[in-house]
Amino acid sequence: MAQQIPSNLGLLLIIGTLAMFIMALSIIVFAVLYQQKMRRKKQEMVQLELNYKNEMVQATLDAKEIEQRRIAIELHDDIGSSLTALKLSFVSLPIDEEERQLLNEGVQITIGKVRSLSNRLLPSVLEELGLVPAVKSLVNTLAQQIPNVHFSVIAVNDPKHESQTREVSLAVYRILQELINNILKYAKATVIQLTLEQNEDGIQITLIDNGTGFVPTKEDKLKSQSLGLKNIESRSQQVGAQIDYELQNPGTKVTLLWKPKTEI
């Protein structure tokens, strides 16, 4: 009997050690699984927050487009018609021909400005003819309005491969508007070169100016006064476009690239 005690103790030690090992392994497995679960929860929360922000951005941009459309229609239908009627009424005014001519010219200039503003708010060419004709129209209008800046545009369109939706076309058009507006306001450029290519691979726009040169940082995009940069960033994220800035000597080169999503 005395000889069996050490053997039993050894067996108990082995069992106890095995039990502790299993317990320790269980704790480790539980900790790993818990960490994975918490990591998945965190990723889900981040994704939910990102989706919410994207939805808010989309809602804001949609509301802005609706309001711009409303204002553009009022400018065209109400104010434009009123100015045209005013111009026609000059015929019956008891004034000499020279004064009547000056009034006509003044009202005609105002009508032109109203039409230009209406078209910037609601690019009808974009909806009717597509992105490339709309961009050409935008650049031609700016070239007439700002004679001290030389604009050049090369636009290539493959109508067989117009893979973008109206949403993408509008976002790209608005981004381009904002980029050109920033150049005209801040860069002191005298030359703006635009190249646009649209084909089965997507849309690529290259915008080069000879101004002071500017590459926005993350801090620049977050500044409250940088509304233009925020709009560019929001619209590019909205449709999944990529924008790169590169300093030139002189000026800045901006490249916008949008590719259609490939279905899996």
Rank of each mutant, 00 (worst) to 15 (best):
residue 136 K to G: 04
residue 136 K to F: 08
residue 138 L to I: 04
residue 146 I to A: 05
residue 148 N to P: 05
residue 149 V to F: 14
residue 150 H to L: 15
residue 150 H to A: 15
residue 150 H to V: 15
residue 151 F to I: 05
residue 151 F to Y: 15
residue 151 F to A: 06
residue 152 S to M: 10
residue 155 A to L: 08
residue 156 V to T: 09
residue 157 N to K: 07
residue 158 D to E: 09
residue 158 D to L: 03
residue 158 D to N: 13
residue 161 H to C: 06
residue 163 S to G: 14
residue 165 T to V: 04
residue 166 R to N: 08
residue 168 V to P: 03
residue 168 V to L: 08
residue 169 S to P: 01
residue 171 A to T: 02
residue 172 V to N: 12
residue 175 I to L: 05
residue 176 L to A: 09
residue 179 L to K: 06
residue 182 N to I: 00
residue 182 N to C: 02
residue 183 I to N: 03
residue 184 L to G: 02
residue 185 K to C: 01
residue 190 T to Y: 08
residue 191 V to S: 12
residue 193 Q to C: 06
residue 195 T to Q: 15
residue 195 T to L: 09
residue 195 T to E: 11
residue 198 Q to K: 10
residue 200 E to H: 06
residue 201 D to L: 11
residue 203 I to D: 11
residue 204 Q to R: 12
residue 209 D to L: 13
residue 212 T to P: 02
residue 214 F to V: 06
residue 215 V to N: 13
residue 215 V to K: 11
residue 215 V to Y: 10
residue 216 P to A: 10
residue 217 T to Y: 15
residue 217 T to E: 12
residue 219 E to P: 04
residue 228 G to W: 03
residue 231 N to V: 00
residue 232 I to D: 02
residue 233 E to H: 09
residue 235 R to K: 07
residue 236 S to F: 04
residue 237 Q to K: 05
residue 242 Q to N: 09
